[in-house]
Design a protein around this nucleic acid. Structure first.
Length: 259
DNA sequence: ATGGTGGCTGTGCCA
């Protein structure tokens, strides 16, 4: 099974770009972030025409996540527990059954958190704590679990072309990096780092020629429970997608699992 | 170099 995660930066502006990559890569499951659409506004039909079931958790204007899956998404869960007044749409989880078993998938859009001195950074860390609690609950199920999404965390200096440029940014704060390590200490595996030690990026800013200079960062991650890590066969970062027409500023990350 | 670009919104906010 090919499972992908991709921050598309707006489904309306990215519809053709997204459909084009789906036709070519033919992933079984795609976790989308930043759909920037309410559920009723998401263009379901073209994805269903490609054979996908569509589940969304959207909001007006910003944020919003979705899961596309060739098989039905069972038991969908929208949002994380622990903050009933939080209206930001950043988490969608569900179960996919195959002939070889089940896999639980979550589409995650962790808050950016900039600027660090603002309440946005506190919100980021609080949201990360709520994700840790969910991740702990999921580990207890002893299922293959894939926590996929835009984490807005640069884990290590190797994950940025110019790490010195990010030292005051929320994405590279010690607290943000500690959260990411804590997830791994619980037992989750960084799928990219399970397959390579090389520098590789998933995001290049639209500004200042970042793509042309390869001034990128690795912030889109797939974290695997032990049962999922045991089934990991391959991981790719679809870097060339960034150089196409009307690109998102992020590219897809794809993991192949033997489920 | 306190800019730069892009999406969605609504005359600015967010990334």
């Amino acid at each position: 099974m090919k499972i992908a995660t991709w921050n598309i930066n707006g489904i309306k502006a990215r519809l053709d770009t997204t459909l084009g990559w789906l036709r070519e890569a033919e992933p079984d499951v795609v976790c989308l972030q930043e759909i920037k659409s309410v559920d009723e506004g998401f263009p379901v039909d073209p994805f269903e025409s490609l054979g996908y079931n569509v589940a969304t958790h959207g909001q007006k204007g910003f944020n919003g996540v979705a899961i596309l899956s060739k098989r039905p998404l069972e038991d969908p869960k929208r949002g994380l527990d622990g903050a009933p007044d939080d209206e930001q749409a950043r988490y969608l989880e569900g179960v996919i059954s195959t002939d070889a078993g089940v896999v639980r998938v979550a589409s995650i859009y962790l808050p950016n958190g900039n600027p660090v001195e603002s309440d946005k950074f506190a919100y980021k860390l609080a949201w990360a704590d709520r994700l840790i609690r969910r991740a702990e609950e999921l580990l207890a199920l002893e299922e293959p679990v894939v926590l996929a999404g835009d984490y807005n965390v640069i884990p290590d200096p190797i994950d940025a072309k110019r790490p010195e440029a990010w030292v005051n940014d929320a994405l590279f704060q010690p607290e943000s990096r500690a959260f990411y390590r804590r997830l791994q200490a619980l037992g989750y595996t960084d799928a990219v780092r399970a397959t390579t030690d090389a520098a590789c990026y998933t995001f290049w800013d639209y500004q200042a020629g970042a793509w042309q200079k390869d001034n990128g960062i690795r912030i889109d991650h797939m974290l695997l429970s032990p049962q999922a890590a045991d089934r990991l066969e391959a991981v790719t970062i679809e870097r060339d997608v960034r150089g196409r027409d009307k690109p998102s500023d992020h590219v897809p990350v794809v993991a192949t699992l033997s489920v």
